[in-house]
Simulated assay, not measured.
Amino acid sequence: MEPAWRQQGRGRGRSQVGQQGERARPPQQQQKERERPGGAGRGATGTKSEPPLAVSVQTKFEEIRKSNQAAAQRLAETRISSSSSSDDDDDDDDDEDVDVKVDQKDGKRGKILASTFTTYTDQTGGDASGLARTGQYVTDLFQSGALTCLICIASVKRTQAVWSCSSCFSLFHLPCIQKWAKDSAFLVSSITDEDFGQKQHPWPCPKCRAEYPPSSTPNRYMCFCGKLQDPPADPWLAPHSCGSVCQKELKPSCGHTCLLLCHPGPCPPCPKMVSVSCLCGKAKPLPRRCSNKAWSCQQQCNKLLPCKQHTCTQPCHTGDQA
């Protein structure tokens, strides 16, 4: 057995040789060994340079969230701008101020409305109280999305061919109402008619259900007053209007015609001034609006009753009283 001093010497020799061998290796090789997976250098440097997993995930989440918010904002702004300009017929320059555009548009619409109602207001001394209902129909023509076809549930554009119900004055796309009339008549015929297809059935308005005969099925695009076929889009007229005086017979019938320019909706009350007596006929005639010409003098009627013996003791009234 070797002495202890020999064993220690051999150990020291091996340790020294190992250290000398490590020093003898080139620096590039030593660097590569440190960068190997599982090496001491890798473990020491890797844990310090790489961020923790939770921090990395949170950072990516914040970046994606901000990116999505920015994209959603751009999309919303694009859609709002496109929807507001899709139905705008004004050819103003893009670099003009927005407020100026709105003022110009409102001023133009005001002039169109004024020209439509001028003949009427001239008869009433500027009083437009009777135009409230008709004015709303005309105003809706200029507002994007205000009018909707109840058949296809799409907006009625000012350049599209339309048909207007004479009872409720609703607007429908011409192709939509044509298909509606055809399908409605076919459906009624197939259910009620024994001799299928032999009898003509009326078709109803999709909104108010007013019935129209088969001969009234619209086959042409007409203006509101019915004088002009395919009315051109005039920027200084109400959409779908021919610009002529309406001249429809007023209801209730009074012998006068509508004084407005070709318009949607109902004709306003007759504005003409007429001279009429009271309901009982005893008072002197007074000038009254034709649409509100009936008036009572509040005196005792004194008309002979149907019994032919007594007279009416009621104040001036309409009709006969027993």
Rank of each mutant, 00 (worst) to 15 (best):
L147G: 09
I151P: 00
F169Y: 14
H256G: 05
V274G: 01
S170Q: 09
D195M: 12
C165I: 07
A70Y: 10
P306K: 02
A128W: 06
E22R: 15
S56A: 10
S216E: 09
Q29V: 15
H173S: 00
I177H: 00
C242K: 01
P252N: 06
P204I: 00
E35G: 08
Q16M: 08
S170T: 13
Q160D: 15
T134I: 12
S189L: 00
T59C: 08
L261K: 13
R289P: 07
P266E: 07
C270V: 02
K182P: 00
Q31S: 09
L250N: 10
P175Y: 01
T139I: 14
T121W: 05
L187T: 07
Q178V: 02
H310E: 06
R289L: 11
E96G: 07
D122F: 07
V156M: 09
D95E: 10
F169R: 04
D193C: 14
K303C: 00
C176P: 01
W236D: 11
P232G: 03
Q300L: 09
E62H: 07
R12A: 13
E211L: 06
Q143N: 15
C307P: 02
P232D: 05
V138R: 14
R10E: 05
R10N: 03
C301Q: 04
S164W: 02
F169P: 00
F117M: 12
Y212T: 04
Q31I: 15
Q19C: 06
G265N: 04
A114M: 07
Q20E: 07
V98M: 05
P271S: 06
Q19P: 04
R12E: 10
D89V: 09
A24C: 09
W163M: 00
R34W: 07
T118Y: 14
A294F: 12
L187M: 06
G145S: 07
R36E: 13
Q16G: 05
S167K: 12
A40M: 03
T124G: 02
D234A: 04
H317N: 08
P285M: 12
A40S: 03
R209I: 03
T217F: 02
R23Y: 09
T119Q: 12
H240T: 01
Q299A: 05
G38E: 01
K60P: 04
Q7L: 10
T121R: 13
G46H: 11
C262V: 04
C205T: 00
S291H: 06
P26G: 15
A233N: 07
T217L: 10
T159N: 15
Y212L: 08
G39H: 02
P204L: 00
S15Q: 09
F196A: 06
K251R: 15
Q314W: 09
S277G: 14
E211P: 01
L261Q: 12
D95M: 08
D88Y: 13
L131H: 13
P264D: 10
C297N: 05
S86R: 12
D93Y: 09
D87Q: 11
T78G: 14
D87M: 13
S85E: 13
